[in-house]
Amino acid sequence: MQRLADFLDGIARVTASIVRWLALVMVLVQFAIVVGRYVFGVNSIAAQESVLYMHAALFMLGAGYTLLVDKHVRVDVFYAKASDATRRRIDVFGHLILLIPSMLALAYWSWPSVRNSWKILEGPISVGGIEAVFLMKSLIPAFCVLVLLQSLSLLIRLMLPVTSSEKAAA
């Protein structure tokens, strides 16, 4: 089971190592847009939309890694002062009752829109924009799959027995 969890973690790490570069590219493109508009009087709707696409991809595809490194949003009202055993129970509850059903529902309810978008190869958001809204909509099921895989990995780790080194670290 440990090897499966490590493999699933690897998917999140590889995905993050690729999409993290979108942050740099996004800043450079946005800088070029501003310089082009205000210095040279040139504007490109496609370039503006590319920033939107990169932003969407960065956050949607990076969500699984965010969950892996425990940097996701958490309500710490009870969690912060809870014992390790209680935290494990809260995490299991959160994955099984909240996160996994939410991701499955989102994937289920968004799939018809994604499928239809691919069927018609849905065009740009704005006139003159990138003719690939279907690709951006595909980020929704990709997001769901990546978060579900990472949730499964974390659940596997939560179900593994606590080692003495983990007890000592706590």
Rank of each mutant, 00 (worst) to 15 (best):
Q2A: 11
R3L: 11
R3M: 10
D6C: 02
L8I: 11
R13S: 11
R13A: 10
S17E: 02
I18S: 09
I18F: 13
V29N: 08
G36D: 04
V39C: 11
G41I: 11
N43Y: 13
A46T: 02
E49M: 14
Y53E: 08
H55I: 06
A56P: 00
A57Y: 00
F59N: 05
M60W: 03
V69S: 03
D70A: 15
H72S: 04
V73F: 07
K81C: 14
S83Y: 03
R87V: 10
I90L: 14
H95R: 09
H95V: 15
L98R: 06
I100L: 12
Y108P: 00
N116G: 13
W118P: 00
K119C: 07
L121G: 09
I125H: 06
S126Y: 10
S126H: 08
S126P: 01
S126D: 12
E131P: 09
F134A: 02
L135H: 10
M136E: 03
I140D: 01
P141I: 13
A142F: 13
F143T: 02
C144Q: 06
C144I: 04
V147R: 06
L148M: 13
Q150V: 08
Q150H: 13
L152K: 07
L154Y: 03
L158Y: 03
M159E: 06
M159P: 00
L160A: 04
V162W: 06
S165N: 14
A168L: 15
